[in-house]
Amino acid sequence: MSKIECAGSIEAAGLEKVYLRGSEHVAALNGVDLKVNAGEFVVISGHSGSGKSTLLHILGGIDRPTKGELSVNQVNLTGISEAALTRFRRDNIGFIFQFYNLLPSLNALDNVSMPSMAKGLSWKAARERAAVLLEQVGLSHRQKHTPGQLSGGEQQRVAIARAMAIEPCVILADEPTGDLDTASANSIVSLMTDLNQRLGITFIIATHNLHLVRLASSSYELLDGRFTQASRK
């Protein structure tokens, strides 16, 4: 696969997110500023409930900030419609989740095909592309297996292949190694760093994994919805 030709940059300024829980307002983000250059490997760490996932969801356009400005690939996502946001997400951003979130009714090949098909690729072309991606993540022999027939590490590899299906500029990963044993986690980390270095895809990863923190080109620590620490290599 060739290097991906898109900016993959992210600029966020003063991001705030307030949830209404019952009658109580809970601030998940309290003014987050973030600048990520294309091709960076960014890690965001922090305790559970610190706002990592909320930040990733906002950066990925699957949630909206209560306040603040956000642009991804130089597209301002703050004021665009829900349908436009969905299309932007479909065309530019890949997601990896802690619990994989594969569609249980589909086999690995079909799971990886879905984003391409959502983007408009034909069924045949999407499956051909999915087969190539599964081969790249070392699962060509598991194409016909459903998520229930795969190990955690294998499911996460399928999820990475799925995230790659649309040739994204940015991949957002929420605790991608959180549910894996050490060997599987190391394998997933290697796969992600390889994709970052080989294809230039921007990665933003929310994690507790210290190994990932050490590999990051930039790392941030979130506490109560604010960055308390940042380091850049």
């Binding site: 349908a83 979130n101 569609l103 879905m114």
Partner: peptide, 15 residues
């Protein structure tokens, strides 16, 4: 619900 949300995240519009 879970699958529907996931499809939405993968880029399928609400329509």
């Amino acid at each position: 619900g879970h699958e529907i949300l996931l499809l939405h995240v993968l880029g399928f519009t609400q329509a």
